[in-house]
Write a protein that binds this DNA or RNA. Structure first.
Lengths: 334, 334
DNA sequence: TTGTATGCGTTATCAA
DNA sequence: TTGATAACGCATACAA
C-alpha cells in the first residue's frame, strides 16, 4: 500500500506531477502519465481520501440520515441514493436517528464533523424543533429532504403523494366493482396515515359512495378481538366487499383473518395494501398494493443534492412530489 | 462553526493547549480547561475529524461490508454493530456488495482509502477468490467476518449455527407430536440451505423417523403448481403433519397454500419457519420460527474488532458460533 | 502547566 | 510540462 510520495520516489518525478496525473489535470505529458500510472499499479497505490479532503475542502461524501435502516422503505431509498451517488463518484455515509430527536442531532453533527459535502435527510417522528435545520441552511450546507420534510420554508424536498396513493387505491377497488369499501387506518398521529385516510374518504365522496362510522377501522392487533370485530362487521348490514389497508402489514393481517372466517379473497372481498413490501408477493392471493417508488425517490434526492454541489448553482429551491404506482395483483382482481 | 485555531485566538491560549483540553489530556489547569470549553461552546466548535484522523493515524471509523442493506437479516446485524461501535465512540461506514465480487472488492478498497481502523464483513455469495482478504490480513488490517466467513484459515469470525437451528426446529415439531415431517428446502447452492437441510435430516434420523424422497420439497414458487403439489402430497399415503420451512418467507407462502386447501394450522399440520422476520407475527396463526440473534451477532463481531484495535493485543484468532433461539408461536403449538 | 514547531498525505500556487 | 513549497486542521514531541 503506497502513497503519492512513494510513486514520486519510484518514478523520479515530483509529488506535484504525480498528483496531477492521478487527478487528470491534463497538463502532463503522455510519457510521464504512463510512467506514473504504471508505478501506481505496481506499488498498489491507495489514495488517502482524508488527506485529499482536508486539502481540497471536498470530501466527495454525502451524508444520509434516516430514522431506521431496518425498514425496507428506507433501505430501498438508500439503494437509490447509493446508486446515484456512486455513479457520480460520491460515497455515502448512513446514520440512523431511530426516531429520536437527540440521536438525529448527533447524527447530523457527526456528518458535519466528517466533512460531508451534502446531506440527505428524512426527519425523525419525534423531532419538534428545527434549529439545527436552520443552522445547516444558514451555514450553506447543501441539504435535501426526502419522504419526511420539516415544516420549514424554502427547502429542497422529495416527497411521496400519500393522499393520491390512497385515492388511487380506493378508486381501483371501485372500478373492480366494490360497492362498500372500508379502510383499515393507521395511527392517526402519523401524518402519512392521516393523508391516506383522507385520500380514501375523498375518493369515496367523489364517487358518491356513502361513508359511515364503520368505514374506518382501527385494529387492536389482538388477533381474536380483531377477528370478532371483522366477522361481526362482515355479517352486519354494514358489510363490505372491499378493503383498503393503510399498509401491507395490516393487509396481510386482515387477509389471514378473512381466511379464518372463510371469506374468499378476491371473490367475496377485494383488498389492496400500501407499500409494496416483499412479502406481498408471497401471500395467496398475492396482494395488490401501492408502490412508493423508493428507488426513484433516492435517486431524485441525490441528483438534487449533486446539483447543489455544483459551483454555478443559483439558489433555486424545488419540491418534487412523486406519484404513486398502482400494483394490481390477485387480491383485488378476478 | 469554529476550529481549534479560533478557540486559541479567542482565549489567548496556544492551539496545543486547546487541543489538549479537547482531548482530555489531563495536563491542563482547571482554569484554562473551563475557559476553553466555554469558548468552544460559544463559537460552536466542530472538530474536523478528517484532520484529526490524518494526524493521529486513527479514524475511529469501522467499515462494514454487507451484501444487501435491504434485507432485515443484515440490517438487524448492522444495528447491533452500530450500537456497540457508538458506545465505544466509533462511527461506522456501511458499504454494499450486492452479492457481486467486483463491488465487494471496490467497497473494501473504498474503506481502506477512507482509512477505517477496522473492517467487518459478510462475504458476497459470488465471491470465489480471496486475494483481497489475504492482502488485508497481511497488511495487518483488523478484520472480523460475520455470518458468511471466507474459506480462509486463521480469521476471526462470528457465525450462526444453521445446522443446529434446523435440528432444534425439527425436534420441536417432533415434541409437538408430529409423526411425519417434511422440509421445504432452499436453493441447494447456498451453503446455509444445505446446513438447514442436514440439520433437518439428522434430527429425523436421531429420532428414528423415516425419511423418504417426498420428505424434502423444492417449491417452484408458482402458486397453482405448488398448491397442487402440496395438496396431492397431503392426500397421499406420504401425508404430513409437520413442516419445517427453510425460511419464514416460504413458511408464509405455505401457510397460505394450506389455508387454500382447507388444512388447519396448527390442528392438522404444525409448521415452523426460520429467521424470525417481522411479518411472522402478522399471520394467523402466528408463525413459530428460529431466531438468529442478529443483534448479538453484530455486537459480538464489533467487540471482537474493537479488541483487535487495542495496541496490546496478542494475535489470537477466534471463532464464535451463535446458537439458535427457538421462538414458539401458534403455528406449531396447540 | 503551557507554548513552539513539525508533520500526517494531499492539493494548489507560483515559479522555472 | 514540471518542481518546490505552502497550506488544510489537528496532535504530539520537545522545550520552556
Amino acid at each position: 500500500m503506497a502513497g503519492i510520495k512513494d510513486i514520486a520516489k519510484k518514478t523520479g518525478l515530483s509529488v506535484a506531477t504525480v498528483s496531477r496525473v492521478l487527478n487528470n489535470s491534463a497538463l502532463v505529458s503522455k510519457d510521464t502519465k504512463d510512467k506514473v500510472l504504471k508505478a501506481a499499479k505496481k506499488l498498489d497505490y491507495q489514495p488517502n481520501l482524508m488527506a485529499a479532503a482536508l486539502r481540497s475542502g471536498k470530501s466527495k461524501i454525502i451524508g444520509v440520515v434516516v430514522p431506521e435502516i431496518n425498514n425496507s422503505f428506507f433501505s430501498k431509498i438508500i439503494n437509490g441514493i447509493e446508486q446515484k451517488a456512486n455513479a457520480h463518484n460520491y460515497t455515502i455515509i448512513i446514520a440512523q436517528s431511530r426516531e429520536s430527536k437527540e440521536k438525529e442531532t448527533k447524527a447530523i453533527q457527526s456528518l458535519i464533523q466528517s466533512k460531508v459535502d451534502g446531506i440527505l435527510i428524512s426527519i425523525s417522528k419525534e423531532t419538534d424543533d428545527f434549529d439545527i435545520i436552520h443552522s445547516l441552511k444558514s451555514n450553506g450546507m447543501p441539504i435535501v429532504f426526502f419522504d419526511r420534510p420539516p415544516p420549514v420554508k424554502n427547502v429542497n424536498e422529495v416527497v411521496f403523494d400519500d393522499y393520491k396513493g390512497a385515492y388511487i387505491a380506493t378508486e381501483h377497488l371501485i372500478k373492480q366493482g366494490c360497492k362498500s369499501i372500508i379502510h383499515i387506518a393507521g395511527e392517526p398521529k402519523v401524518s402519512i396515515h392521516r393523508k391516506r385516510k383522507n385520500g380514501f374518504m375523498d375518493a369515496l365522496k367523489k364517487n358518491s359512495y356513502s361513508l359511515s362510522e364503520s368505514s374506518i377501522i382501527y385494529l387492536s392487533m389482538n388477533e381474536s378481538e380483531d377477528t370478532k370485530t371483522i366477522q361481526k362487521l362482515y355479517k352486519s348490514q354494514n358489510s363490505f366487499d372491499g378493503i383498503f389497508a393503510h399498509g401491507d402489514e395490516s393487509c396481510l393481517y386482515l387477509l389471514n383473518i378473512l381466511k379464518t372466517i372463510a371469506v374468499d379473497v378476491p371473490k367475496n372481498v377485494k383488498m389492496i395494501g400500501f407499500g409494496n413490501k416483499k412479502f406481498s408477493r408471497l401471500t395467496q392471493p398475492k396482494l395488490s398494493t401501492i408502490d412508493q417508488r423508493c428507488l426513484e425517490m433516492g435517486e431524485i434526492a441525490t441528483s438534487r443534492v449533486l446539483e447543489l454541489l455544483k459551483p454555478k448553482n443559483e439558489i433555486s429551491v424545488k419540491t418534487k412530489i412523486l406519484s404513486p404506482k398502482l400494483v394490481i395483483r390477485k387480491s383485488s382482481f378476478d
